[in-house]
């Protein structure tokens, strides 16, 4: 199973150059049955990462560009009266794919945003009183521009919380940027990608990850981290038990990708910032300055060997 994961990482890395930690994080998020929010400036490779991931994983994929005039039905689908059959037929929206890329999600109106986010949480949608299950695996990759960009509707805390992770890609390194600029036919490369893994295998991995052992000490560590955030240090939102769950699930996936059957403190530390930063600090967007992130600050206050 692990060589499959290695192949996936390698293939995605061949297109999204120099971003292996982010790739691993997003894979961990996917394996943990979570959804991911990629926040960055335009042109940083958000969409490319989402496309390559879905291609490599061999999943059905549709991209939706969110705009301010979008309606919920544009996302979930609509029943239209078919005069031939004399009945309403459902026209499924882009959400009925295994990988949904919701591009620039914060450009859509809150109404449309919540339609998507509701589907993310409950894994099914209701159209005209009828409930439709969403395919498995179901994975939403949303991208958003930084909040200071014009024409954006910031996602409310409750909806941000639905994303297991938020990552930022950041500028590439010198070497990576050279490679990116030298490669002219990027689009073709993406189209030629082959799936490295089947949907069944992906589901197996997800199941295996659920069996990764979490010891008492790790639970205590997670609780201690949450408790520190609840002591109202600085200007942060406290971490909810859902955040703790997301943290554990991601850490399990991370441990699994590291070829281990148990979670170590470093797994928690590896995913903590991606999982928790957007829950802690909802005021601003990604920190562009050098100041320490709220998540890092919390991490530094807990001794993993002696958490409580």
């Amino acid at each position: 199973m692990h060589h499959l994961i290695a192949n996936v990482v390698q293939q995605v890395g061949s297109i999204v150059i120099g971003k292996e930690p982010e790739i691993r994080l997003s894979l961990a998020c996917l394996f943990a049955k979570g959804h991911i929010l990629i926040e960055d400036l335009p042109g940083m490779g958000k969409t490319t990462l989402a496309q390559v991931l879905s291609k490599t994983l061999g999943l059905s994929y549709q991209r939706t560009q969110f705009t301010s005039d979008m309606l919920p039905s544009d996302v979930v689908g609509i029943s239209i009266f078919d005069t031939d059959k004399n009945a309403f037929t459902l026209h499924k929206g882009p959400i009925f794919n295994q990988v949904v890329l919701a591009d620039e999600i914060n450009r859509a109106s809150p109404k449309t945003q919540s339609a998507l986010l509701e589907a993310m949480e409950s894994a099914h949608v209701s159209i005209d009183g009828k409930t439709y299950a969403l395919p498995e695996p179901f994975f939403v990759i949303a991208t958003q521009n930084p909040l200071f960009h014009s024409g954006t509707y910031p996602l409310p805390e409750s909806q941000l919380d639905r994303f297991t992770m938020r990552i930022t890609l950041g500028f590439p390194s010198l070497e990576a940027e050279k490679k990116i600029l030298a490669n002219s036919n990027n689009r073709e490369d993406i189209n030629n990608l082959k799936a490295c893994i089947t949907a069944e295998q992906l589901l197996d991995i997800q199941k295996l990850i659920e069996d990764v052992h979490v010891s008492e000490s790790i639970l205590e560590y997670v609780i201690a981290l949450c408790q520190v955030s609840r002591k109202n240090i600085g200007n942060v939102n406290p971490l909810s038990p859902r955040a703790g769950k997301a943290l554990l699930a991601s850490a399990k996936a991370w441990a699994f990708m590291d070829n281990r059957d148990h979670v170590l403190p470093q797994d928690i530390q590896a995913v903590f910032e991606a999982v928790c930063e957007h829950r802690l600090d909802t005021t601003g967007s990604i920190s562009m300055g050098n100041e320490m992130s709220a998540a890092k600050n919390i991490l530094q206050q807990v001794d993993p060997t002696n958490p409580l």
């Binding site: 170590l264 206050q301 807990v302 001794d303 993993p304 060997t305 002696n306």
Partner: peptide
């Protein structure tokens, strides 16, 4: 088991080798 580990950490810290609070045993 943690008790013994903490004892050693304390001893090391007395010898001038401190474990930063958030450092994992592996690091």
């Amino acid at each position: 088991n943690n008790y013994f580990y903490q004892l050693i950490i304390e001893k090391l810290s007395k010898q001038g080798v401190h474990k930063p609070l958030d450092m994992t045993p592996k690091d």
